[in-house]
């Protein structure tokens, strides 16, 4: 496998995809905000706080989606030693962590007025918090070693081990009694959300997914450049012992 062939192809595809992803992200986020704050009804039970759902639920989806993507990239990195897969896993981690954080905080802001508490240690909330720590652990491990390859390997293994948490999050509300209510959108017999509330939910989910594409491309580009820099610097150091000073200056 040519070491730089795939990153080069990635950069070519990324250059085409990026403006489109950005356009989708901006447009669907604007439309999503319009619908979620203005053009959608209040809930019959929860009143206006239902608007928190349009941020909270898509963020939760993204938290789980990004982790799954990260685990797949990590597996590709481990098995096929695919350098691009490692870089894409690294690029996804902060996005997933950000969405998981948003999910946790908005859930707290929603739980206080509706449930009467900011936080409870039920299975759904706890497994989501574990997801957040898995992201933090992955990012810390990936950068913890002086030898980037060793750190990447440890981080990849953590990502794979942690993937068992994803189905636990998804089905925690069905397996155990929780304070959190069961799934509304993805369930047997169709969603339990009125169509007028599905519109902002889907728009926000689309906006977040497009945002992930944009940031994934940006961060992967940065990782590719950083990796090339590392190899160039090392090669030059090898080639001419003393050039290091000049390069860093």
């Amino acid at each position: 496998m040519h070491r730089f062939a795939n990153p080069a192809r990635f950069l070519r595809i990324a250059a085409i995809v990026q403006p489109w992803a950005m356009a989708v992200a901006v447009l669907s986020f604007a439309a999503g905000l319009w619908f979620s704050l203005l053009a959608s009804p209040a809930d019959y039970q929860q009143g206006e706080t239902v608007r928190i759902m349009y941020i909270h639920v898509p963020s939760a989806w993204m938290g789980m989606f990004c982790y799954t993507a990260m685990a797949v990239f990590s597996a590709m990195g481990l098995i096929w030693k695919h350098p691009l897969a490692d870089l894409m896993a690294r690029a996804t981690a902060p996005v997933g962590a950000a969405f998981t954080l948003i999910c946790l905080v908005t859930g707290s802001l929603w739980g206080k007025p509706m449930w009467g508490t900011w936080w409870v240690w039920d299975a759904r909330l706890t497994s989501m918090l574990i997801l957040f720590f898995l992201y933090l652990g992955y990012m810390a491990l990936a950068d913890a070693f002086d030898d980037p390859e060793r750190g990447q390997k440890a981080a990849n293994i953590l990502a794979l081990v942690g993937v068992v948490n994803v189905p636990v999050i998804k089905w925690s509300v069905d397996w155990w009694n929780t304070l959190h209510q069961p799934a509304s959108v993805v369930k047997m017999g169709g969603p339990a959300i009125d169509a007028s509330m599905m519109v902002p939910l889907i728009l926000m989910a689309l906006a977040f997914k497009a945002y992930w594409v944009v940031v994934l491309i940006l961060r992967t580009r940065a990782e590719i450049a950083a990796a090339k820099l590392r190899t160039l610097r090392m090669a030059q150091v090898h080639a001419a012992g003393q050039t290091e000073v000049e390069l860093h200056g």
């Binding site: 905000l33 704050l37 206006e48 706080t49 608007r51 928190i52 941020i55 909270h56 963020s59 902060p94 996005v95 950000a98 954080l101 948003i102 905080v105 908005t106 802001l109 929603w110 206080k112 007025p113 945002y211 944009v214 940031v215 940006l218 961060r219 580009r221 940065a222 990782e223 450049a225 950083a226 820099l229």
Partner: peptide, 27 residues
């Protein structure tokens, strides 16, 4: 409750986006 939820989401996403753009430019 509603406004801090939206404010935080926008803040986190914007911060991550800006940090990513700066990282690309630098590297």
């Amino acid at each position: 409750y509603v406004w801090p939820a939206y404010g935080l989401a926008v803040l986190v996403l914007v911060v991550l986006l800006v940090a990513s753009i700066r990282a690309v430019r630098k590297q």
